[in-house]
Amino acid sequence: MDWMKLFLSFIIGGGICVIGQLLISLTKLTPARILVLFVTLGVFLTALGLYKPLVDLGGAGATVPLTGFGYSLAKGAIKAAKEDGVLGAFTGGIKSTAGGIAAAVFFGYLNALLFKPKTKK
């Protein structure tokens, strides 16, 4: 195992979460808006070529936060657009994130079936 990489993923991932926390604490943005903001930010930063270096450096630290979801979407869409044209721009994003989205629907549904919410103490 590459310990340096693990350490960097911790630092970069933690750092991205701190940006989120600053937004919540200082601007009163709700968590739902934070999620939307981060995924959109990830898409545009990737398009501008600014997110890729962060992924190379931080690995999962950059891909696990929702900005990384945006990175996968944009990377897939741009790559497919270059290969297949307009059709690729439409299919590329979801193709490259299909695993995550399908898992979210499937495990989300499964857990909702199996468990009941509990009152907070």
Partner: peptide, 9 residues
């Protein structure tokens, strides 16, 4: 957040 990303790594 860092810990969750490390698990991802």
């Amino acid at each position: 957040g860092g810990l969750i990303c490390s698990i991802g790594q």
